[in-house]
Design a protein around this nucleic acid. Structure first.
Lengths: 136, 136
DNA sequence: GACAAATGATACCATTGTGGTATCATTAGA
DNA sequence: TCTAATGATACCACAATGGTATCATTTGTC
């Protein structure tokens, strides 16, 4: 079980690079060259990030991508939500239904504690912090 | 992303029941009746638990399963390892190889902290604690 | 205006993991 | 000997993951 999937991972790599070069427009070609991520796959990810409003795209010759906003305002959990869906480590479904005895189940209690911690920690991670910039 | 898969979940349900009836031999039929888990699937899980040494099996008429040892000595992480493989939330592979800059990667640092906590917490969960018995 | 360099949109595909089912062999109590 | 139990093993359907391929559209440059 992995906390982040490859999509999220690649997206972070790309965003880190773009954030570190925030004064220029970064093209897919440049990212492929630096990050060694398969070009068509990277393009798909960037298009998703654009649709989701995290990246701004510039079409045409000389085009590329840049951050929509400050790296301090981009959170890892946003990426995870985009590429991995909602962050529920511990949703107990039994035969498609939510397990009825969630309240009394001792296992759920333990796992919920863990989940709360993980989510709290993940929510504190910004793109800025991943490139060594202070969060404010 | 889920912390535990259905295999693990069902295995826990079965083990909990068996642990709570530790003075008798519990048959698959009984477990199916009480837990409503698909019989062939449950059988497979029990056979694995038997092979892995967590359950002792008694063949023939009147046969069934019982715990190999005290519920205090059975850990959730053992089950997770059996059914889900090694517990690494944060192994960063890039093109099949371990990512070379694990040491400097700020993301890895953050995720490693989370992983350490999760593993520590999971390691503290015994089967006994899941049926409300003290761990000693 | 034509061309080329860029992204947008979309459809497809292979592999793996998850969550099962089916079948036959073996053991042992009544 | 019959039957109720587990052991072993092979198979299967669906979804998620990790991609690829292709064509349309936009825009700067000559």
């Amino acid at each position: 079980m992995k906390l982040i999937t490859r999509d999220t991972d690649y997206a972070i790599r790309a965003l880190r690079y773009i954030a570190a070069h925030k004064d220029s427009i970064v093209s897919v070609a440049e990212l492929v060259d630096r990050l060694k991520i398969p070009r068509p796959f990277l393009r798909k990810l960037l298009q998703i990030l654009n649709k989701e409003g995290l990246l701004e795209s510039i079409k045409g010759q000389g085009g590329g991508f840049r951050l929509c906003c400050s790296a301090r305002k981009i959170y890892l959990v946003d990426l995870m939500k985009i590429f991995q869906g909602d962050l529920t480590l511990n949703e107990c479904r039994f035969k498609k239904l939510l397990c009825p005895n969630t309240k009394t189940c001792l296992l759920r209690k333990r796992l919920n504690r863990i989940e709360k911690y993980v989510i709290k920690e993940l929510k504190s991670i910004t793109l800025a912090s991943l490139i060594g910039e202070a969060d404010e």
